[in-house]
């Protein structure tokens, strides 16, 4: 085992745990209750999910219409399933399936 790697991993892992767990344990949301920080936190969730969606599709956005087809088909499948079944799991799985099938048909 490379000890430098282990040291970096343990320091980073500990910080990750602290970032994720300590604000929950300290109930930082209660400290923020009623003030500007509460409004900030209530907007954090939607902002984070919107951000992560955009960040996850940005690499797939290329200036070639044909290469965008799997992304478009997968996205439409997610929208169709969500608006008809209102299921996150089903919409995700069907979206990925349609995306993969489109790639397969284009091979």
């Amino acid at each position: 085992m490379n000890w430098e790697l282990l040291t970096v991993a343990v320091m980073t892992g500990f910080a990750n745990w602290a970032f994720r767990a300590l604000p929950v344990i300290a109930r930082a949301d209660r400290i923020a209750a009623g003030g500007w920080l509460e409004r900030f936190l209530s907007a954090t969730g939607p902002a984070a999910i919107g951000t992560l969606f955009i960040a996850s599709i940005l690499p797939a956005l290329v200036p070639e219409v044909v290469k965008l087809l799997p992304l478009a088909m997968g996205t439409m499948a997610v929208l169709a399933i969500w608006f008809t079944r209102r299921s996150v799991v089903l919409a995700t799985l069907v979206g990925a399936l349609v995306h993969g099938l489109t790639v397969w048909l284009m091979l």
């Binding site: 939607p46 992560l52 929208l79 790639v103 091979l107």
Partner: peptide, 23 residues
């Protein structure tokens, strides 16, 4: 398995889009 690989690669964007729609 390029089609399988592509489908699995779209799993997280599809999940984020579904979650975005749900909220």
């Amino acid at each position: 398995w390029p089609a399988l690989s592509a489908g699995l690669g779209f799993m997280l964007p599809a999940l984020f889009l579904s979650l975005l729609l749900s909220i």
